[in-house]
Design a protein around this nucleic acid. Structure first.
Lengths: 209, 209
DNA sequence: TAGATTGTTAATCGATTAACAATC
DNA sequence: TAGATTGTTAATCGATTAACAATC
């Protein structure tokens, strides 16, 4: 990796797309792929792909292309997907329930290690093969299970409180689905998903057709 | 609205954040807000907010700020949220089920009007107050119910086929959750959500701490 | 060798930030 | 009026696209 190059957020966000598509390509039996062909399949220009990849090293072979197997391994290592991350889901509403059962995460190396909810009726039940714990035990259990990433799927009102507890328990990555701005320390990586944005933007464009 | 100004995608994606925060602010009883204060709550610079809003008109009052009620109405109209959009969810897996039960969409003016699945065992059941139809009847029912936006929550393998059927039924907006690139005609608005991107980017940053 | 395709530098494009005049 | 805050123009920053030398 070239230490002096600053990698843009846009590049990081495209890597998972490359990764996913390359795995698909590999399943189809393709061993070598050009940036041209990969770009066509992802919907990104070949120049973009070459530029993105080149900021991490020389992964391709001039005049030939990229070895699929090797590139998958390299991108996986860049994204840290070769490691095994323990994740915890906080809030077993509809969305939390769906995420707990989402198989794709496991295939990326994310291991569901704990689930929490406030509702005493839910505590003790199994979800995605994991027991639901009371949110009162969040800090204790999160430490014990060595949780790396916390997924917040509680209502907006309690999201900040949950975030604070996660951080107190040593969690350094937060994936937030509550529609509210969270404040966390600088050493905590926060990614917020806002599902209303996508739908609203469709509405915007449909309105002007 | 200023017809000659080109509005950036980034601006459109921030409008739902402004909208949501302003409604919160309104509930708290605030009637006037400055770009400074609004920016603080959203996590965006005041200049950014003023620039975004100014591309659609003069919504504020110099020396005073923005009237919350008025601004909510204006942004709502810009985003087309004053209209009532009929949406259909295709694929009642974990995620489709969660989205069908997601109350926030209704509060934004999106009306769940139909749900589809391939599984005969699911057909006829109720979900989010709506009957599940066989995917074989997609085109027929989508036309009948005047579906504006289709939500794709089927596996990647069948996503393109579903997209084609939706478009054939006259649907002009597609919100895709299947992890694959979809091809649609230019007059169809496609927004794809990729849930693995957020999680992978957290992994990336945690790897280098 | 000739053709293909990468990696990298330069040019362009677009979005954000800074500054400030206008005005409530 | 003085203070506050918007709307807009100019400056900066960052990301994408184009071009091409390097090389397999």
């Amino acid at each position: 990796m070239k230490e002096h190059i600053v990698i843009s957020k846009a590049t990081i966000d495209r890597l998972p797309l490359y990764f996913r598509t390359l795995r698909l390509v590999q399943q189809e039996g393709t061993e070598i792929i050009s940036s041209e062909e990969l770009g066509r399949r992802i919907g990104v220009t070949p120049e973009q792909i070459r530029k993105d990849l080149a900021s991490f090293g020389e992964f391709g072979k001039k005049g030939v292309g990229y070895f699929v197997r090797e590139l998958i391994r390299n991108i996986g290592e860049i994204l840290g997907l070769h490691r095994n991350w323990n994740i915890a889901i906080v809030g077993v509403g509809h969305l939390g329930w769906a995420l707990a059962n989402y198989k794709n995460f496991a295939s990326l190396g994310f291991n569901l290690a704990a689930v929490f909810d406030v509702d005493p009726a839910k505590v003790g039940q199994l979800i995605g093969g994991v027991e639901i714990y009371s949110i009162d035990r969040l800090e204790e259990v999160a430490r014990e299970r060595n949780i790396h990433i916390g997924v917040i799927t509680v209502p907006a009102e309690s999201a900040q409180e949950v975030a604070d507890k996660l951080v107190a328990a040593g969690v350094r990555g937060i994936w937030n689905f509550a529609p509210i701005k969270l404040n966390v320390a600088d050493n905590v990586r926060l990614v917020s998903e806002d599902l209303s944005v996508g739908l609203s933007s469709i509405s915007y464009y449909l309105s002007r057709q």
